[in-house]
Design a protein around this nucleic acid. Structure first.
Length: 782
DNA sequence: GCTGACTGCCTACCT
DNA sequence: ACAGGTAGGCAGTCAGCG
């Protein structure tokens, strides 16, 4: 009487019913229809590890004797803990809500060393133990249920589903939304400012706006809710919806006594893991979380994010800044424009979600985290969950996250650059240096040889500099995981070659490869992160030390064969482009160091300042790479960055400063004449803590204080855009926030002296040009 | 009271 | 809220200065 159901897993949550836990899998079937699968009465469990002086049997009988409330049964199982085989007691409870209490009581028993995995909650555990993967296909035997409390089809499960891989992508319904609320002064506050406009764009290419008409927004909320329920999206997406839009909507609803019913089980969004808002049965994505990972986007507005991804929804609209909302809303004639603007925001958000969904789903599938969580979670937690999955596969117990003391260690080497211009420069990079070192030397938490362990010297690799020793065999956890990841990447690359670049499968595999890369590259840093479950400082420290040794050997070899090294940082070296010598070097690395170094690119000309980590290179196709310099920094005014970029280009193209210097003089003349628009004079800096916690005065902090005074609310890590204005006093006194400044107030002298001149001179001084020669009045030979 | 040398705070960047 | 290495602006302090 059961029926087979193939489904794509979107989310999991749990419901407590009579103290027992029901697992709820929110899925879509092959036809793209949403379905709820309920697996009732799923027990929870954790493990108790006996002290070395005791045994699992003894611990089991202690637990039985103590009669701890909620323990349903115990079982002795074989596991591994940091690679060592251990007999542990699996403690099962039918009342998952009691687990932490039970674990605490068990942890107190005299023969118990520790409890483990009591911090892994039932929902995620259900997925892990049964090999279920978010954003992947599965198959289950299901029993139709007559349950009426949710609007979609419900089935019961008697046993867990199984993975049933398929490259197919379900057709998911997506709804993007954007909220505008207007305050009388500064930011809108949910306590007294109703939502003015709520726009929604749906994957069937429709856009709807809900505009407040009455004195409050209850009707607006009700209509939006009806709209959501009617469209019934699988994915809801916004921009800063986790931290702003949903909390605002929730507070408005509370204020109005309006019970939200937006999810698939009859309630509203609620805060969940890693700061994301959970909407039962739907995936709630926040594109801002995605933008946070894109370091190229300096000021993370929706408009900038859209531009970065080539989303053109804002094309026709003139931009409306948040501080202008109030004005646009207040005037009937302009209100239409504000509505159109908000609709463009919703559509841009939808496009961004569509573009990035393949990456999000692949990252979810790889880490095993639900898609909305994985996007919000920091890299460390993504690695955490990936490792938890891998640990389970090999019977390794999952260590708890502990508060560990922090001891810094020595990191990578950066070479002093050969200052000036160089022609024909090759850049050589190690391929995944840290991961490969960790594999090569088997650096792992369980392969470490501690003082008390006795292992024959020949079976051990010692990192001289850190004095840490690692067993050569068997292969450690990190090494095995990293090898798997690197192999998967190679596999994907091979597969991809045989595919049509326009096919969906190609696209998805590419995104999978990106996800694999993210996790691979984060493992070294993860190992040295005190918050990591598998934190072992010696592993990261030794990887860093071996990395230094590696790059040093490469440099020494280059010297020996007369290959000039111009610069190097961590796992890269810049050398004169002498192919025969480079080839010898690559071969040496492969044979002697057992690592791979690759020729990344060749610059026709490069420019190195005296500082490390700041240089520029001209590629054969005319493109410019600029690294570390003001051009690529978000905290320099556009006018200075533009001038510097032009200078770099002219210098690299001409090998002479003339055109560059002329350009700078013209920029300064424009500045003095007031021909530079205000937006090119804004300096953006992140406010990293509340203004009152700063120990010194700083321009962006003072600007932030002015915003607060004007009634604006600032979120944590907000970028403050400010302009230096005319007047007396300290610089910080002259910094005014963008929202409150007028073009006439600008102190152009500051931009000349402290922005354009130093940024340009930094480059031109390499060619012997002095700062004063860059002033219009000092033009030579005119 | 101003100048210059120096230190510390702070932010953003590189691999 | 993955690691350490690095640059550089500005504030602030203090010595020197008739």
């Amino acid at each position: 009487m059961t029926q087979k159901l193939e489904f794509y897993l979107l989310d999991v949550n749990t419901e407590t019913i009579d103290h027992s836990t029901e697992i709820r899998l929110w899925v879509v079937n092959r036809k793209g229809k949403p379905v709820l699968l309920r697996h009732p009465r799923v027990p929870a469990h954790f493990y108790a590890m006996p002290k070395p002086s005791s045994t699992a049997e003894s611990v089991a009988s202690s637990i039985a004797g103590t009669k701890i409330a909620g323990v349903s049964k115990t079982e002795i199982v074989e596991k591994r803990f940091f690679g060592k085989p251990v007999q542990v007691v699996k403690v099962v409870s039918d009342q998952p809500e009691l687990v932490s209490k039970i674990a605490h009581a068990v942890g107190e028993l005299k023969n118990v060393e520790r409890t483990v995995e009591d911090d892994i909650r039932v929902g995620p555990r259900y997925l892990i133990e049964n090999g279920l993967v978010p954003c992947a296909w599965h198959v289950a035997e299901t029993i139709p249920s007559s349950a009426k409390e949710v609007a979609i089809d419900v089935f019961e499960l008697e046993k867990p589903p199984t993975l049933n891989e398929s490259a197919e992508v379900p057709n998911l319904k997506m709804l993007a939304f954007s909220v505008i609320a207007v305050g009388a002064k500064g930011s809108a506050r949910p306590e007294h400012d109703p939502i003015a406009i709520l726009s929604a764009a749906t994957s069937d290419e429709k856009t709807h706006s809900f505009v407040r008409e009455g004195k409050d927004d209850s009707e607006l909320l009700a209509k939006f809710q009806d709209f959501v329920r009617e469209f019934d999206p699988d994915i809801i997406v916004g921009y800063t919806n986790n931290r702003l839009d949903w909390p605002y909507i929730i507070k408005r609803a509370e204020k109005l006594g309006f019970k939200l019913n937006l999810d698939r089980s009859g309630s509203g969004p609620h805060p969940s893991m890693y700061g994301h808002m959970s909407i039962a049965g739907r995936v709630n994505l926040d594109i801002y979380d995605l933008a946070s990972d894109m370091i190229e986007i300096k000021v993370k507005t929706l408009e900038n994010t859209a531009e970065f991804f080539g989303v053109t929804e804002f094309g026709k609209n003139e931009p409306i800044e948040e501080h202008e909302y109030q004005d646009y809303w207040a005037h009937e004639s302009r209100r239409t424009k504000l509505i159109a603007w908000n609709e463009a925001r919703a559509r841009a958000t939808l496009r961004l979600a569509e573009l990035n969904l393949p990456f999000v789903t692949q990252l979810a599938a790889l880490t095993g985290m639900p898609p909305d969580q994985v996007l919000t979670a920091a890299v460390g937690f993504r690695v955490d969950w990936y490792l938890i999955r891998q640990a389970h596969r090999v019977g390794e117990l999952v260590p708890k996250r502990l508060d560990q003391p922090y001891f810094p260690y020595r990191g990578a080497i950066v070479l002093e650059p050969r200052t000036g211009l160089h022609d024909n420069v090759a850049v050589l990079d190690f391929a995944s240096m840290y991961p490969n070192i960790m594999i090569l030397r088997n650096l792992s938490p369980e392969t470490i040889v501690r003082g008390k362990d006795s292992v024959a010297a020949k079976d051990v690799f010692e990192v001289k500099e850190t004095k840490a020793k690692f067993r050569k065999k068997p292969e450690g956890f990190y090494a095995a995981v990293l090898r798997g990841l690197i192999e998967e990447r190679v596999r994907i690359r091979e597969q991809v070659e045989r595919l049509d670049q326009k096919s969906l499968e190609y696209r998805i595999l590419r995104e999978r490869e990106k996800a694999v890369k993210v996790i691979t590259n984060a493992c070294y840093g993860y190992a040295g992160w005190t918050g990591a479950r598998w934190y072992v400082r010696e592993v990261a420290e030794s990887a860093a030390a071996l990395g230094r040794g590696t790059i040093n050997e490469v440099i020494a070899f280059a010297r020996k064969i007369g290959l000039t090294v111009i610069y190097g940082d961590t796992d890269s070296i810049f050398v004169e482009n002498a192919p025969a010598k480079i080839d010898r070097l690559l071969k040496m690395v492969e044979k002697e160091l057992e690592l791979e170094i690759k020729g990344d690119k060749v610059y026709t000309r490069t420019l190195f300042t005296e500082a490390k980590k700041r240089y520029a290179g001209l590629l054969p196709d005319g493109r410019l790479d600029i690294v570390g310099l003001e051009v690529v920094r978000g905290d320099w005014a556009e006018v200075a960055k533009n001038a510097q970029e032009a200078v770099i280009r002219f210098v690299l193209e001409d090998k002479s400063p003339d055109r560059a210097a002329h350009h700078v003089r013209r920029t300064i003349a424009d500045l003095r004449a007031g021909r530079i628009p205000l937006r090119d004079l804004v300096i953006w800096k992140t406010l990293t803590k509340p203004v009152e916690e700063y120990k010194v005065h700083a321009p962006h902090v003072e600007a932030a204080k002015k915003l607060l005074k004007a009634g604006w609310e600032l979120t944590s890590d907000e970028k403050i855009g400010y302009v230096i204005t005319k007047g007396k006093g300290k610089l910080y006194e002259k910094a005014k926030p963008l929202a409150l400044v007028g073009a006439k107030e600008v102190d152009v002298e500051y931009y000349e002296t402290n922005q354009v001149l130093p940024a340009s001179a930094r480059i031109l001084e390499l060619l012997g040009v002095k700062e004063r020669e860059l002033l219009p009045e000092n033009a030579k030979g005119a």
